[in-house]
Design a protein around this nucleic acid. Structure first.
Lengths: 149, 149
DNA sequence: TTAATTGTTACTCGTATTGTTACATCATTT
DNA sequence: AAATGATGTAACAATACGAGTAACAATTAA
């Protein structure tokens, strides 16, 4: 299975909507920035809409964030675009008659839960506003490095 | 097939080697506990050997841990069996001419690195000894619940 | 020598992700 | 009212990776 960039693309979409709020927000325009295709963008926007992160209206290219960028965390986006949301996965087919096979599943589930919690805590501390600030900072640095285009 | 259980199976192998050290440690015996096949077990053992977590000898079914179980962490095993070791992945194909597409990759890479660090810190605090203790605890609980087999 | 085991490779299969196309539905413009 | 453009949605293909499986050389021990 290929590594997923759904989270990255979803963040991309949200940042695009915020930064280019006075330009075209059509899925084709966003797709050009993501270098993907409009259908993929719309599919991700469905997931973001279901997670109550943005609103859309059929027929109009007017997606809007439902709240301030500082109130949308990386965790919100992550949970919106992943199915189960688990970073690590237990092998649920082990031999129950073996001491290891019969007890490792619950043991690992608990350990993985601790790792998951640590990761999610960090994700919850990174907001969309933080990311957009970073994007602008890097943009200004690039412009400063190349004063004449 | 769905998400990878390489980490789970690798921990399984290490725990099996420790718990059943006085019984057959052939890849077929371990595979029976994992409910997988010997070749998969041997492939994972290659990764664990390269990470200096165990030693093997061709022709003999005598894998041995290179150090005490308390000195082997979940992070050690994770890094042994994953290629790049990254839990989250940046979309490296975005439009560099767009403010978002041109700066989001590095921005997300930094954010993902923080999440990765949080997860790895937690993984480093979970040792193979902890997991084996958990396995034994659960085993005793199951035996107590069913006094007569 | 014979049997068992590891080390290794090649191949198939299942499935998640992404790319692509098509079309119904809705809104806006003419 | 018609035309245009957008979203919502589904279907299918292409791709990639994990896992299953089989096969065989190399090595060890009986």
């Amino acid at each position: 299975m290929r590594y997923s960039h759904k989270l990255s693309d979803a963040v991309h979409i949200l940042a695009y909507i915020d930064i280019y709020h006075d330009q075209s927000l059509a899925s084709t325009a966003i797709a050009a920035s993501v270098e993907s295709n409009p259908a993929l963008v719309r599919r991700l926007m469905v997931a973001l809409r279901r997670a109550d992160l943005l609103t859309t209206q059929q027929g109009t290219a007017q997606p809007r964030l439902t709240r301030a960028t500082k109130d949308i965390t990386l965790l919100d986006v992550y949970q919106a675009v992943t199915d189960d949301g688990n970073l690590l996965h237990v092998d649920d087919k082990t031999n129950p008659l073996c001491i290891v096979g019969g007890n490792i599943q619950e043991t690992l589930r608990e350990a993985y839960q601790q790792v998951q919690h640590a990761a999610e805590t960090q994700m919850a501390q990174i907001t969309l506003a933080d990311l957009i600030t970073q994007i602008w900072t890097r943009q200004r640095q690039r412009e400063a490095a190349k004063p004449t285009e």
